[in-house]
């Protein structure tokens, strides 16, 4: 577990990995978007607006996956005191919040022509909005307590907040099953997919592409924090003479 605790060893892997994740990710998401826009057929009911699926679903996945990452990092920080976990949590927060916002916005744009409304307070939408506010709270708490925190990561209090907030993730996932909602039920389950294969395949490309890109962004933000730590440590040593 602590094999990558050493920032130098982590950076040795993170430096080349950033590019390896970024460029294939970008390529895949652009290819998937192009296929989703121009290659796949229109939906029998929704027509062309079904194409929003190929970006709305990855955005939702990253928003929820990002908070899952924050929770795992928080557990590693609190239990094993892994020094890089606090940095990882801080690095995930901003892109996670962004993709949650993108999910809400694309969902709203999709809702107008299909459902006839920009926004309704149903279980899925409300719990996703709660996730966005949780991200904002995490970022604010992380920044406010950055001074007590170690090495540019989040403080332990922020990590606890990240762990507590994780309860929202299964609620989002199950919201359309537990409650009557305007949002439709899950299309892709363990039993298979109710999205026809001819419409489904670009989603695989964009899901993988956005995920790789998200990984690259998190690595970039972690590298920025680690580099800043190095500068600050040097400055302190200089100041002490």
């Amino acid at each position: 577990m602590h094999r990558f605790a050493n920032p130098a060893r982590f950076l040795k892997i993170a430096r080349p990995l950033t590019g390896w994740l970024f460029w294939p990710g970008l390529l895949l998401l652009l290819a998937g978007s192009a296929c989703g826009l121009f290659v796949t057929p229109a939906d029998y009911l929704q027509g062309q607006t079904v194409r929003i699926l190929y970006i709305h679903v990855p955005a939702a996945w990253l928003g929820m996956g990002g908070w899952s990452g924050i929770a795992i990092a928080a557990l590693m920080q609190l239990v094993w005191k892994h020094p890089l976990a606090a940095v990882a949590g801080r690095a995930i927060a901003a892109p996670g919040a962004l993709f949650t916002a993108i999910c809400l916005m694309t969902g709203s744009i999709w809702g107008r022509p299909t459902w006839g409304t920009w926004w309704e307070w149903d279980g899925r939408m409300t719990s996703m909005l709660v996730l966005f506010f949780l991200y904002l709270g995490y970022i604010a708490l992380g920044n406010a307590s950055a001074r007590q925190a170690q090495q540019g990561g989040v403080s332990n209090v922020t990590a606890i907040f990240g762990l507590v907030g994780a309860i929202n993730i299964p609620i989002i996932n199950r919201s359309v099953v537990w409650w009557n909602s305007l949002h439709q039920g899950p299309s892709i389950t363990l039993r298979g997919s109710s999205i026809d294969g001819s419409l489904l395949w670009p989603l695989g490309l964009t899901l993988l592409g956005f995920t790789l890109l998200f990984g690259a962004i998190v690595l970039m933000r972690m590298r920025a924090i680690l580099a800043q730590n190095k500068v600050e440590a040097r400055m302190q040593r200089l100041a002490r003479g």
């Binding site: 057929p41 229109a42 939906d43 029998y44 009911l45 929704q46 079904v50 699926l53 299909t114 459902w115 006839g116 409304t117 309704e120 305007l182 439709q184 039920g185 899950p186 299309s187 039993r191 298979g192 997919s193 109710s194 999205i195 026809d196 001819s198 419409l199 489904l200």
Partner: peptide
């Protein structure tokens, strides 16, 4: 006010009208 609610199925127009098996997701 009326809102349209669609289900979790997505398919091209050619498949419209086919029978959908809810437990196996087969058309």
């Amino acid at each position: 006010n009326l809102l349209a609610k669609h289900d979790e199925r997505y398919m091209p127009r050619e498949l419209e009208g086919m029978n959908y098996n809810e437990s196996t997701h087969e058309m």
